[in-house]
Design a protein around this nucleic acid. Structure first.
Lengths: 121, 121
DNA sequence: TATAGTACTTTCCTAAAGGATAGTAGAATA
DNA sequence: TATTCTACTATCCTTTAGGAAAGTACTATA
């Protein structure tokens, strides 16, 4: 019974990649993380630093990022109270992903708008 | 007029990251790329190597990846004709992203299921 | 007193993603 | 002749993402 060719397994890579994508999926999570990592702490500042994001989406994404311990919501008991969003140590672990995406995005834009000059492919 | 604090700009990073996300967004594009990169060439093999994907979604994603020149659809004129999906040179440029996501996903799973042993955070 | 700022929430809506299931056309195989 | 293989397509449906606009409770400021 000559074994039918069958496919090559790639689950070793596919599974962890999907785990990662589940946490950072969507259009806004990484931009918010980048903004907070750069030092924006107030709701309004973060919002204004990311063109196009609405407060509803911001609020939802901030909650999810908090649950994943990728940012911390800090209430400062002043009058009036201040609310700050701060990076967690765990946030730093995303740096390699963000860097890789940034570099790829820069190269991709080169490729699309100036194909003859682009470095890769 | 003491300038109101204002936010810190992070567009240098946010913009290219968003460019990249637009190409590799969704649940399935990277898994498909991984499968093709590992050597799966036939529609059915790719599909079987990625648990949960349906043929409809496969077909749609393959078309989009082709448009972005991340895979090539090759028709082999045999009887019957064979259709092969192959990686393009440009596919390799995604390797750093895939590696970063894979490493992060592995670490994240550690953190979630064995917090006391996890390496980072 | 009126306006503005802060951190949201609420409502309503559209579009896109994704999933289940079935079907199909041609060729090969039993 | 019947079934299987291949690479899809077609239908239908549910869920999620995301966007527009307004509102709110509190405080501060002019």
């Amino acid at each position: 019974m000559a074994a039918k060719k069958g496919y090559l397994s790639c689950l070793d890579t596919v599974k962890p990649v999907r785990d990662a994508l589940e946490v950072i999926n969507g259009k806004w999570k990484l931009p918010i993380i980048i903004s907070v990592a750069v030092g924006n702490e107030r709701f309004t500042d973060i919002q204004e630093s990311i063109p196009g994001i609405t407060p509803k989406v911001m609020a939802k994404e901030l909650k999810e990022l908090e649950q994943h311990q990728l940012i911390k919501r800090v209430v400062v008991e002043d009058y009036p109270v201040k609310i700050l969003y701060k990076p967690e140590p765990y946030t730093d672990t995303l740096t390699p992903i963000i860097d890789a995406l940034k570099q790829w995005g820069l190269n991709h834009r080169q490729k699309i708008f100036h194909p003859e000059v682009s470095r890769v492919n």
